[in-house]
């Protein structure tokens, strides 16, 4: 029982990391139908910028909380600028190109960002400053820390904030209109370029927050940290129904739970044949299974085929 509770906590925390990253994917996809494969790299840049800025400021004598706050702010701004430039330079010229084109561009950008980060920050794993208090709690034999609580709350807050933005503001209305039919939206006076750029900038700000949270949680950062995380988060977004904010959240948490419980119990259930060495493929197998039966994901609406 104690173990089950702990595994549920593990899954929930891991899941909210996925959800946080998945929100960025889903926002961009919902509006332009583009998978921004480089999103995971933006998460990584966010973490590394925060690490460098915080490190430099604490070295200059600032207290950790202030240095950390400034580090997060700089990371968010850097990522917003990065998101804007990505859209402007790489994706906007391709908006009317065939479907595969922007996808391959995105893969290319992901490689470029990863290698640039490697040149700037080196190949070694770096220590990420412990930004949050080190408090630990224990309930019913299950342990959790303050960082984990902050992480779950941040994800939930981000989702609610994003939902508010999309469903309650003028920008949100313009976004939804663009998502429905960008040409008509354009005729109705929506500035499509600005709406798409806004989606990228907001998505990248979310990525920066995610990067800082991940860094602070594991206290380690590395130029390749975004890649696998991006893949998993993307899987989560597809699982929940890409383009759907609630779906991204649900998909993320579901994926986290599948991984934790899968690693925790499948080994015992199959007599050790399928143990934790298959942890990474549970996610993909569930994804394929879901897509076979519900090609639009668990919560996705059956929109017309977006091929």
């Amino acid at each position: 029982m104690e173990t089950l509770l702990q595994q549920l906590i593990n899954g929930l925390v891991q899941g909210s990391i996925y959800a946080l990253v998945a929100l960025g994917y889903t926002l961009v996809y919902g509006i332009m139908g583009l998978i921004n494969f480089a999103h995971g790299e933006v998460v990584m840049i966010g973490a590394l910028v925060a690490l460098s800025v915080t490190g430099a400021l604490t070295a200059a004598g600032l207290p950790l909380w202030l240095a950390g706050a400034l580090g997060i702010a700089v990371a968010i701004l850097t990522c917003m600028a990065l998101g804007w430039s990505l859209e402007r330079i790489a994706y906007r010229p391709l908006r009317h190109a065939p479907r595969l084109t922007p996808l391959i561009t995105a893969i290319g950008m992901s490689i470029v960002l990863q290698n640039l980060a490697m040149m700037l920050w080196g190949r070694n794993y770096m220590q990420f400053p412990a930004l949050f208090p080190k408090a630990a709690f224990s309930v019913g034999g299950a342990h959790f820390t303050a960082v984990q609580i902050i992480m779950v709350l941040t994800s939930a807050a981000m989702m609610i904030g994003l939902a508010f933005l999309v469903y309650r503001t003028r920008l949100g209305m313009a976004m939804r209109a663009t998502a429905q039919n960008s040409q008509v939206a354009g005729l109705m006076g929506v500035n499509i370029d600005r709406v798409v750029a806004a989606a990228f900038v907001i998505g990248s700000a979310l990525a920066a927050v995610a990067g800082v949270m991940v860094g602070a949680y594991y206290e380690i950062a590395h130029y390749q940290m975004g890649f696998m995380l991006g893949l998993k988060a993307f899987t989560a977004a597809v699982l929940g129904g890409i383009g759907n904010l609630g779906g991204a959240m649900a998909g993320g948490i579901l994926l986290g739970l599948i991984e934790a419980l899968g690693a925790g119990y499948i080994g015992d259930l199959t007599g050790g044949f399928l143990g934790s060495h298959y942890q990474d493929i549970f996610a993909f197998i569930v994804l394929i299974a879901v897509l076979v039966f519900r090609p639009a994901g668990l919560f996705g609406e059956k929109t017309g085929e977006r091929a």
Partner: peptide, 28 residues
Amino acid sequence: APTLKLRGDYLAIVTLGFGEIIRIFLNN
């Protein structure tokens, strides 16, 4: 077979996952 209905982006992520599944099985 299972990906016939999928297109573009969905197909990309499923094939990517498939590649990883094969590699992980070879490894284990």
